[in-house]
């Protein structure tokens, strides 16, 4: 079942086109990732889907409701964790949760608040003021709060931005758990390759407001040429001859004492390859698996970091222009 359907969605700010005729749909139960540099239009897309911004043109439906005309139903279907914190730090964790529950018209809040605080391991700190929390704790509290009214869809805008590696890993586990155990459909934006790759069932690579590629992380990587096994050996001629006899290997090259095999799912097939040649001397074996970074580079001709710098320029220029 399609939970989100977006058709030719466009958002402009003056002459800056933040989202440019974007179309996609998201299935129930998916973890869907938007990957792209800062300023690519990820947050703007999310803001439109969460009814905070009105689209300039095009349509978007969340849980079957129109984001422009059925705001209230859309808002009840979604939980949102924004990129920047939105907690009242002068209140306790429980009070923040409680106010959220009241705003969503929840009658029996207490048990559910306790249950969710337990889920994000904050039940011992529920009566502590949020300003005493660490960055990771705040983010966990926001996720718990976003889930309080039992939404079908959870939006996570850069969920691990500014967190240390350990906390990030921890948070990834939560997100996966939520998706698998609670069946929450999750839409996240990130400019971290590893985050998009590890979490998402499908990834949309977005740049300059357009989706330039959309598929599973595996399929995206295969589109840019798959993976490669490189074998180093003094007997590389023999190795080449031996491997040429194998049906499922066809992309072989030999040079400078190296044999290169380009193939799909190399990490799964490498053992089989070695088994065929293990009576020959092998000096080293290496495996290169393309990353989403390679995918981004392939489609845009730039790495994400380079693109980020130019996006900042674009925004700066736009600000300058609009000041005039």
């Amino acid at each position: 079942m399609e939970l989100i359907k977006v058709d030719q969605l466009t958002k402009t700010f003056g002459d800056l086109v933040a989202v440019d005729h974007v179309s996609f749909s998201i299935e129930q139960g998916e973890i869907f990732g938007f990957l792209g540099p800062n300023g690519a239009g990820k947050t703007t897309t999310l803001s439109i889907l969460s009814t905070l911004l009105k689209p300039t043109s095009g349509q978007a439906f969340v849980n079957g409701y129109d984001v422009e005309n059925q705001q209230s139903q859309v808002r009840r279907s979604i939980g949102v964790v924004f990129q920047d914190p939105t907690l009242d730090e002068e209140l306790t964790a429980r009070e923040n949760m409680d106010i959220h529950g009241r705003l969503y018209g929840m009658k029996h809040r207490k048990a559910r608040i306790d249950e969710l605080l337990k889920l994000v391991e904050l039940e011992n700190r529920k009566n502590q003021l949020v300003k005493q929390f660490s960055g990771g704790m705040k983010r966990r509290l926001e996720i718990a709060r976003g889930l309080l009214h039992d939404p079908q869809i959870l939006f996570l805008d850069e969920p691990t931005l500014g967190l240390d590696p350990q906390t990030r890993n921890h948070l990834w586990d939560y997100i996966r758990d939520l998706n698998q155990k609670k069946g929450v459909t999750i839409i996240l934006t990130t400019h971290y390759m590893d985050e998009a790759e590890k979490l998402s069932d499908r990834v949309a690579i977005i740049d300059h407001g357009q989706i330039i590629a959309l598929d599973t992380p595996m399929a995206l990587k295969e589109q840019v040429g798959g993976s490669r096994i490189r074998i180093e050996s003094k007997e590389n001629q023999k190795i080449l001859q031996r491997l040429q006899g194998i049906k499922w290997l066809n992309n072989l090259t030999n040079y400078n004492g190296f044999t290169d095999i380009t193939l799909q799912n190399a990490e799964k097939k490498i053992a089989g390859v070695i088994r065929e040649i293990n009576d020959l001397p092998i000096d080293s074996v290496s495996l290169k698996i393309p990353s989403l970074e390679d995918v981004f580079l392939h489609y845009t001709g730039k790495t994400i970091r380079e693109q980020e710098a130019s996006a900042k320029d674009r925004i700066r220029q736009h600000r300058k222009a609009s000041r005039r």
Partner: peptide, 13 residues
């Protein structure tokens, strides 16, 4: 500034 306004604006009220 602290973003709390967003939290209330995205609620179904």
């Amino acid at each position: 500034q602290i973003g709390f306004l967003k939290e209330t604006l995205v609620a179904p009220v």
